[in-house]
Amino acid sequence: MATLKVNNRALEVDSRPDRTLADVLRNDLGLIGVRVSCSEGECGSCTVLVDGEPHTSCLMLVNQAEGHEITTIEGIGTTDDLHPIQQAFVEEQGFQCAFCTPGFILSAKAFLAENPNPTADEAAVAMSGNICRCGAYPYIVRSVLNAAEKLRNEAGTQAAE
């Protein structure tokens, strides 16, 4: 039995300790926005935020996540109220099939928290741990830059208020 803090909720999971975090998030908690593709930490589909840092959840054992704040794509926006980064991906068509998109968006979230005003090159390097098999990369970079602008404007508005 482990207690995981996922998307601001404390959830009990009954799991063997040798299962991966990705497996438990998907199959026990139904958070299927956590995509599993390569299962060896190369493709970035399973990226989640752990205390705000991006982690490949397919390489983490579930017990290693205990006591940490886990954020999945389900935790950052809803269909009616998209997160600015999600909105930016929609506007810039930063995907085709969208399998990889949750991982990209979470990587972008961590990256933009650190670098709110990146160049296109910096954004491309920051997204290098995520693979898009549709090859939407140029659109993804534009999405990240658009998201950066949205987040800066949001922060500016908040500061002004």
């Binding site: 930490g41 190369e42 970035g44 990226t47 752990v50 840092e53 991006p54 982690h55 490949t56 390489l59 983490m60 990587s107 990256f111 920051a126 290098s128 741990g129 995520n130």
Partner: peptide, 8 residues
């Protein structure tokens, strides 16, 4: 590796 694996 990748940014999200280097954190681990």
């Amino acid at each position: 590796c990748t940014p999200q694996t280097r954190t681990l």
